[in-house]
Simulated scan of single mutants.
Amino acid sequence: MSRQISSLLAIAAVCVTLAPTPAFAQAPKKAPVDCEQVKCLALTFDDGPGKYAGTLLDTLKKHDAKATFFLEGQYVKSRPAFVKRMVAEGHTIGNHSYKHPDFTKSEPGTIRNEIKTTQAEIKKVVGFEPKLLRPPYGLADLQVSEIAGEFDMPVILWTAGSQDWNSKNVEAIKKQTMAVAQQDGIILMHDWVKQTVDAMPAIIKSLQKKGYHLVTVDDIIKRHNLQAGDVFPVPAGWSAQ
């Protein structure tokens, strides 16, 4: 997919992994999941690592499920052990800014600093910089796309949200997640929402029972040949000229 730089992206969405340095322990590589042959789904968790991330990681490990965590630099700094564990257990981590400002209302220097500072915090903890960017609130425009390109990162959004931040209700989160699950879907969730973490064992079991392989965003996007600054999934209303 080529960069659609000629069009302005104004997204109001409903709400990486490079190999680490040899010194950092990582989960043994399993045979890759072929999402062209099996039904894949990516659960993604924003704004973390949250204080319930350890419990979430326990659940993912128990059910042999992978996930993607878009991390804020401020919490990487305060909860580095969770970040190390995410990588060690085979999950993907991405950049979600340092303090979660709206990039579409920020100066270019602020956006660059938010991304750069978070990259540095993550590298300090796990020895490498993530290669996926999810802007705060899922909001981006041409400027955000351009700056993401400077960091050699595509912009990763989602196909649907769990609405966990809004409902904060276990049953509602389960119902919404199952309702929006689809092949090659990317679902937005948050590991700071306790009810999400509480609901996760039942959600994973239900998804796996329906035949979903719970994979990382890397597995979903690898056949799309994303370039730096590309936005995926392309939001409704995008007009490439």
Results as ranks from 00 to 15, higher is better:
235 P>M: 06
111 I>A: 06
150 E>A: 03
188 L>K: 03
60 L>N: 07
230 D>Y: 00
20 P>T: 13
41 L>G: 12
78 S>T: 15
58 D>E: 14
86 M>W: 08
23 A>H: 02
62 K>L: 09
24 F>G: 02
219 D>A: 07
146 E>N: 13
8 L>W: 07
20 P>C: 03
96 H>K: 01
21 T>D: 08
69 F>A: 01
155 V>W: 11
239 S>W: 04
92 T>N: 12
241 Q>S: 09
106 S>R: 09
30 K>C: 02
9 L>V: 08
185 G>E: 09
136 P>C: 11
231 V>W: 11
87 V>K: 02
101 P>R: 06
61 K>N: 15
105 K>H: 00
148 A>Q: 07
77 K>C: 00
64 D>T: 10
135 P>W: 13
235 P>F: 04
92 T>A: 15
136 P>M: 10
107 E>S: 13
43 L>R: 06
100 H>W: 05
27 A>E: 09
186 I>Q: 10
24 F>I: 14
116 K>M: 00
66 K>Q: 15
207 L>I: 13
195 Q>V: 07
156 I>M: 11
225 N>G: 09
167 S>Y: 14
165 W>M: 07
65 A>N: 05
11 I>Q: 12
52 Y>D: 15
206 S>D: 15
220 I>T: 06
85 R>E: 14
20 P>N: 10
6 S>F: 14
177 T>A: 03
218 D>R: 03
154 P>N: 13
105 K>F: 00
183 Q>P: 12
232 F>Y: 15
5 I>L: 14
80 P>W: 09
230 D>A: 12
2 S>C: 00
156 I>A: 11
241 Q>K: 12
92 T>S: 14
34 D>P: 05
69 F>T: 06
197 V>Q: 05
111 I>T: 04
60 L>Y: 05
93 I>V: 15
6 S>V: 06
102 D>E: 10
186 I>V: 14
125 V>C: 11
118 T>R: 07
69 F>L: 00
59 T>Q: 14
71 L>I: 01
159 T>F: 03
73 G>T: 06
61 K>E: 14
82 F>E: 07
196 T>V: 02
240 A>H: 05
6 S>P: 02
81 A>F: 01
119 Q>H: 15
90 G>F: 01
56 L>F: 07
101 P>N: 08
110 T>F: 01
42 A>F: 03
149 G>Y: 05
38 V>M: 05
10 A>K: 04
23 A>D: 13
